[in-house]
């Protein structure tokens, strides 16, 4: 979602403290440190008293096979995410072209499709491909049963991302191209889009986080992604709590890294990240 550069304003809200304020801040810093320590202590204690810190729940993480197996699942997650991302990019691009076309009908239809995919949970789409499509005799591998719905769900958002990028290209560019006698199609593909790409790359990357998250329900269609493999580990080692927590942390780290990349790219190219929760800044 939206990338915030929040360090400047959050410091500006408070002016540099006087001696009295400084003492108060020091006091509350100490208190809050104690509270945070107590909180962490309580969580650890909870793990301890319920026996979840027992070595047998954790020693599996010392085995390379565990990590290889999780790594295989992670490869599955990457595969599915990249394919879903590709589907979303292609479809999103087509939807954007349709949405921006001068044909009222085509534009209207694409708008409805975009809003449909943005307004429907990816899980519902997954169930559609998992439960409904096979009843019409279409056979699909679990790979496509997860990538297609996740890709479709993201395509609606990406169409809007692309549209934002196209609108961000200065008008003068297309006007100059038209004045050279280019046709609309050529202007869009040769002049505007290549420039729009620069604006949308950070947004595309940050949308990848949504895709990665959406693929975690791959177990519904029994595709071996990281979470699905984690479930296998759990049955093998009878270590549910530790495995689920570790896997959650892995997902968080991966998504954090992707987000971080998107934000730093956006900052370097001076663009903003367009996503579901951020409006397109004028």
């Amino acid at each position: 979602m939206s990338a915030t550069n929040s360090t400047s304003m959050r410091d500006a809200l408070y002016e540099s403290p006087g001696p009295h304020t400084r003492r108060r801040i020091r006091f509350w810093t100490a208190i809050s440190l104690v509270l945070v320590a107590v909180g962490i202590g309580l969580i650890v204690r909870r793990f301890y008293v319920t026996g979840q810190l027992a070595p047998r729940y954790w020693e599996l993480f010392a085995r390379p096979t565990t990590w290889i197996f999780l790594g295989k699942g992670f490869l599955g997650t990457i595969e599915v995410s990249l394919m879903a991302g590709l589907i979303a990019i292609v479809l999103g691009f087509l939807l954007m072209l349709g949405r921006m076309s001068s044909s009222r009908v085509l534009s209207g239809i694409c708008r409805v499709i975009i809003n449909f995919f943005r307004g429907v949970p990816s899980l519902l789409l997954i169930y559609f491909f998992f439960l409904v499509v096979p009843t019409y005799g279409v056979k699909m591998s679990s790979f496509w049963m997860i990538t297609l719905p996740v890709g479709l769900a993201a395509s609606g958002v990406l169409a809007e991302v692309f549209r934002g990028g196209m609108n961000a290209v200065p008008k003068g560019q297309s006007e100059a191209a038209y004045s050279l006698g280019m046709r609309k199609m050529k202007v869009t593909m040769k002049i505007v889009f290549p420039q729009a790409v620069r604006y949308v790359i950070p947004s595309l990357i940050s949308q990848l986080v949504v895709v990665v998250k959406d693929t975690t329900v791959a177990y519904v269609v029994s595709f071996p992604d990281m979470l699905q493999n984690a479930r296998v580990l759990i049955t093998n080692y009878d270590a549910l709590v530790s495995v689920y927590f570790v896997v959650a942390i892995l997902y968080i780290l991966v998504n954090y890294a992707i987000n971080h990349l998107a934000v730093s790219l956006a900052r370097r190219s001076g663009t903003s990240i367009i996503s579901r929760t951020s409006e397109n800044p004028v």
Partner: peptide
């Protein structure tokens, strides 16, 4: 913001 919803729900 980075944890997948299902992963959190399962926990």
């Amino acid at each position: 913001r980075n944890i997948p919803g299902v992963s959190l729900l399962i926990i």
